[in-house]
Design a protein around this nucleic acid. Structure first.
Lengths: 237, 237
DNA sequence: GCAAAAGTGTTCTCTCTACACCCATGG
DNA sequence: CCATGGGTGTAGAGAGAACACTTTTGC
């Protein structure tokens, strides 16, 4: 048995809930957005001082989804625009005591990320340049990034990283940041226009050069196809 | 607090592992395969007498994957050709006591299903004609079916429902059973031939009409893209 | 020979891609 | 006027759907 200073019964499996949170931040150098995520510095024994995913223990009286929202808010103060279960991690040696972690992943808009950026013990990192992480959290983050890249290809979750109104160039930059690859502006425009998920507004983003039309997402279209789980188990209290 | 006759501490969350198992069985009437699954009749209090997914409690010293394999074997005697985590279900009211279920889904080949078909308290059901299920298992099955239909489109998991060698017609019937839709034999042949996942043999399936060439899967090609989870967390211990 | 499944060829449409080109604005 | 990003046009490659057609077997 492992020596620990505090915590409940060591002979039971405990259930934790953690969340991988993604947002975007513009690099001051090249002005292009990068995928960033908040991490929490551990203040207790296992892996003290290392960075870890925000999370906490599952309460007896809350569902997994509720626990994810709650611990996410408690540790980072963030309100996500998208939240979905990622995977359950339960290797025996992933923690000194036996812990099964139900991991979620979330998107937050840049304005929301900025609003809550001043939390204690929380710092934002570029996903391309992460520090050493506690537990198996590095592996978890890699899986979440893979899921983000897959899902952005067949759903409209990119929406969760943008404000209500945005230009096509801004939307394209989201995809470019996630794919780490430049996209043809002309072809991108047509693809997204033909998808039926965008509604053009009469407003324009002025600045340099020709003003760009602002678009917003069509709320009739589902954010992401989750199959039969759309709003049954997932949103149950 | 809920009245129960046996089991550990009621004030803790327990972790269960269940598996949705799919196989194929030919309908004697039209000779076309249908997607079937084994269910276990409950012999204890919550939902006694109803059918439920095979499963059991997570042991302290085994990983989630190991627990899924173990409980699947203990309850049904089956050895799956494919096993993957599906989702973690944790609504507060899904069971009289607090249970978080890590649900897996699996494929077994028809010959394996027939070999183990004589288990006690286990029966096979057509997924299109399921009985009333215990707990939230009906919801779980629906999600697993959705995942099966999605995944068969972008991976070669159909392999897990066939013997080592098979004709293109047999492979096509697998897809037709999962999609509940007829496919054009000519176009299906080309798609699967151009995918590079099949290796033609020199053997033929003789019977009625013109003999059909037997194929086998190219083991070089991954069964399903699982991203960074390919063989790290999943196969640990 | 005939029915039926195995297997091949052809055409049409649709999407993706590359890239040329015009438009509108700030400087 | 010119540089730059916004926005349109267009031609070619490739995938998929529909379907005509040939081949090979059992009966």
């Amino acid at each position: 048995m492992v020596t620990r200073t505090a915590g409940p019964d060591v002979d039971t499996t405990r259930v934790a809930v953690s969340t991988v949170i993604f947002s975007l931040r513009r690099d001051p150098a090249d002005d292009r957005p990068a995928v960033v995520m908040p991490l929490v510095r551990r203040t207790r024994d296992p892996y003290e001082g290392l960075w870890a995913l925000p999370g906490g223990w599952l309460d007896l009286s809350e569902s997994l989804d509720t626990a994810a929202s709650r611990t996410l808010g408690e540790t980072t103060g963030l309100a996500p625009s998208f939240l979905e279960q990622l995977y359950a991690f339960g290797a025996v040696d992933r923690s000194p005591s036996r812990v099964v972690s139900i991991v979620y992943w979330a998107l937050v808009r840049p304005d929301e990320a900025e609003r809550a950026a001043a939390e204690e013990n929380v710092a934002w990192f570029d996903t391309a340049d992460l520090p050493c992480l506690a537990f198996d959290h590095r592996e978890i983050v890699d899986y979440a990034l893979w899921r983000l890249r897959s899902k952005v290809g067949y759903s409209r979750i990119a929406h969760g990283l943008l404000a209500d109104e945005f230009t096509l160039a801004e939307l394209r930059e989201v995809y470019e940041a996630i794919y780490s690859r430049r996209l043809d502006p002309a072809n991108f425009r047509r693809q997204v226009e033909n998808s039926g998920t965008l509604i053009p507004t009469e407003r324009f983003r002025t600045g340099s050069h020709r003003p760009a039309r602002l678009y917003r997402y069509n709320r009739e279209v589902e954010l992401a196809d989750r199959g039969p789980l759309t709003h049954s188990e997932s949103s149950r209290s």
